[in-house]
Structures are given as C-alpha cells and as structure tokens.
Nucleic acid binder design. Structure first.
Lengths: 219, 219
DNA sequence: CGCGCGCTGTCAGCGCAATGTCAGCGGGGC
DNA sequence: GCCCCGCTGACATTGCGCTGACAGCGCGCG
C-alpha cells in the first residue's frame, strides 16, 4: 500500500511518515496543495492523508478538484479546527474520514485501515484466503495457524494481493503500489520478491495468470 | 434508502428517527442487540447506526457477529465513551465510521452520506452477451456461469468485440487495436487467435460476416 | 566506529505457455 | 463450377515468468 501525505508542517509530516512506514506503508510527502495535486495525478496511491491548512491550494479545494476529476482515492482529512461545520463540509466534499488534531497515531492508523479495506470492499480487518490469514491490525500472517515471519516488502505484497482478491493484479501495478517514488525498479524485482514469498508460504496460494497478473487462490 | 437504528435510549432513538426521516430515509428501530441482530438478518438495510452500549448483546459483539457472517453492510458506530482505544477497537471490528456522543445531527448525516456513497461505488463493470459474461474489473470471463481461462490476447479480442457489439469488426481493425505498433502481422494471426477463442467458448457466439468482419451474436 | 547479517534489486539462463506462420481444405458467392 | 475468403491443425519461435547466484545497502550490535 502506497500513501500520499499532504502536510506542510515539517515536524508532523516527519512523524507521520515515520509511523506510517513503521506500519508497513510506502509513503510519499507533498508540502503544498499544488504539489499534492500533481503527485496524485501522476502517481498511483491507495489513499491520501490530507491536511486542510495547506499553502498554495487548500485541502478542501484540492479534494473537490480531485473528486471533480473523477478520482475515487480514499482521503483522510486532518485538521486543527474542530468545528462540526468544517467536518460536514469536508466529508461532503468527498472525504472518507475526518480526524482533528491533536490525534493519537493509533487512531489514525485504525481509520486508515478502515478506509483502505472499505475501498477494497471488505468489512473485516482480518483478510482470509483458504489456510492463509493476514491481520492488518497486528501486521501478522499465518498459514494453517502457524505464524510466518515476513519481511516488510513481502507483507506489503501479500496484503495488496489480498485487498484485491478475485482480481488478477499485473506486475506493473504492484511496482506502482509497493514502492514510494524514490527509485525505479524493473518488474523482475516483483518476480524475485514473489518467489521468496511463495517459498515462505509453502502452499501454492498465489497463482500466476500469464499476461494478466497474479491472483490469490479463491478457496 | 433504508436504515436500521440500534439504540436503547428512547429519547435519542426518537431524535434519530425524526432527523433521519426528515432527511428522507426509511428508518427501523431496534432496542437491544439481539433484536438488531434479528432485524439485520431478516431485512435488507442500506446501513446501520449502532450504539455501542446496548442491552442483551453489546454493539461490538453484534458488529463482529455480523462481519463474521459475511455482511458488508455499512455500519456507523455511536458511543458515549470517547477514548481512542474504544475507537480503534470499533473501527477494527469492522465499523465504517465512528461518532462520539454528543454529536451534531448534521455531522451524523454527513458521515452517513459518506458511507452510503462509498458502498455504492463497488459495482463492477460487466459486459454481457447471452450466456457470456466478461468482468472488466477482475478480467474474468464466464459462459453459463462457468469461468474460462483465457490468454491475454484472447481476452483483449473478446473485450474489443464486446465493446463494439452490434457492429461487424473487420480483421484489419482488430490487427490495429490488439497489438502495439511494433511488429507487422498478417490477418491470419487473427483467424488463428479467433479459432482458439471460439474453441474455448464452446458456444457459437462469434459470427463471421464474410467480407465485413466479426460480430458478437446479439442474443 | 567497524563489522556482519539480513533484505532486496539485478543479472543471466532456462523452460514452457502463448502465439504467429504455413499449408491444406472447405464452402459460400457470383 | 470456379475462386477466394476464411478455418484448422501442425509446427516454429518468441518472450514471459521462474530460479539461483551475487552484490549493494542499511541497520544493529559489538
């Protein structure tokens, strides 16, 4: 899962990036509204965390512009103000959730998990596929009840596939969503990663559909 | 839109019903957790507003039971408690949103609109022709409900024909649209491809109009 | 501050599914 | 009845995706 954080206050931005990366997400930062708009247009994000008080282009206008352009990306709004009017306005502008500063990082993470799983059409925080269980809260994975030690990237890959169960996910899409904007990689990186993950899973759970992508076995 | 409100405090329940009906929703009330569970099982609701402090079966347990039973109905949690732990727990149990009492009715309505809007956005694009179904989201194809394993090109060909249903598509046009410009192929490539596709489909769905092109049977 | 280890991307080679080509055939249209 | 378009099965080729080896990097530990 790859996130865009639009926040101009450096300290908060750094905190957010740290906590989110710790929680297993790939994170890109944008320091003003125009930058965020550009990033959101050009790159592929699974969700956006948006501070309302941004320079150059304020959060609400950015959100309306995004929605106007047809984007359905989940957006979590962050704000200093706490009035219900702003909340209502933000939510009706197309925000998926709303959080007032100061907030507990745990709550932000929980709300983020919620909008991500909702965007994927799931109700539960526990993703299950046959003998496989992935718990997005504790970031743990088990097969047949036996816990697995996955690396950060392996976890991200598996979580992404589970979020998109029932669909063949192309390797190119995985490249877009597993990494932040720093470096370019070739699709072979995905293949290698996948090979390692499959070996750890033991069971053949991830199916390759030549030319289409990868799918988690329906089971 | 039909809503289920699970709230035991009569005064709040009446307020909610009033405001929600005012806003144009059909509203059913449930006064305890067991009743809400029964209602949710028997009737079809577009969303549920759930108080956590319910008698007989508390809200969180009810929510977990619902999610465990596979329901994806949007649920908005209402609570007197305001600690972040409860929020996190509620959201991770599968709630779509969370609101602490006391709240402004406007905010509740806004959040309700948001979760309803989101739940509506999950329809997947289906192309249908008689017994044939092609789902562009999952990139899957089925005939009479039986899934087919198509190769990337076969899928592209079929999707193109379905997009242009009702028109005879010449082989030359298919050559132009199925391949990216690099290599030149002969129209026989299309014929061979088509033969393989027809064999997999089983039923004679793709008709040849000699001299004009190919059409998907109107069905 | 240096060392080592785990993580991860790249490379080269390989096997196999996918797909284009070819040659022969059948049938529809004029 | 002839001719040409389109179909088919066989075969060749290509390129996708898998694998094992290796190297760079970052982080924790001594």
């Amino acid at each position: 899962m790859r996130l865009l954080v639009a926040e101009d206050e450096p300290h908060i931005a750094a905190d957010l990036r740290g906590a989110l990366e710790q929680a297993g997400y790939a994170v890109d930062l944008a320091v003003d509204g125009e930058a965020a708009w550009f990033q959101a247009e050009v790159e592929a994000y699974d969700a956006m965390i948006l501070d309302l008080g941004l320079p150059r282009l304020d959060g609400l206008s950015l959100l309306r512009r995004l929605r106007g352009a047809g984007s359905t990306m989940p957006v979590l709004i962050l704000t200093a103000r706490d009035g219900w009017r702003e909340k209502v306005e933000g939510i009706d502008a197309g925000a998926d959730d709303y959080l007032a500063k100061p907030f507990r990082m745990e709550e932000l993470l929980a709300r983020l998990r919620a909008i991500l799983r909702r965007a994927a059409g799931h109700a539960s925080a526990l993703l299950v596929a046959g003998p496989l269980e992935l718990d997005t809260r504790s970031r743990t994975v088990a097969v047949d009840g036996r816990a697995l030690a996955l690396t950060a990237l392996e976890y991200r890959l598996l979580a992404y596939l589970l979020h998109h169960r029932g669909r063949a996910v192309p390797a190119g899409e995985l490249l877009d969503h597993l990494y932040d904007g720093e470096a370019e990689r070739e699709t072979n990186a995905i293949e290698a990663l996948l090979a390692r993950l499959r070996r750890k899973l033991g069971t053949p759970l991830i199916e390759t559909r030549r030319g289409h992508g990868y799918v988690i076995a329906a089971a």
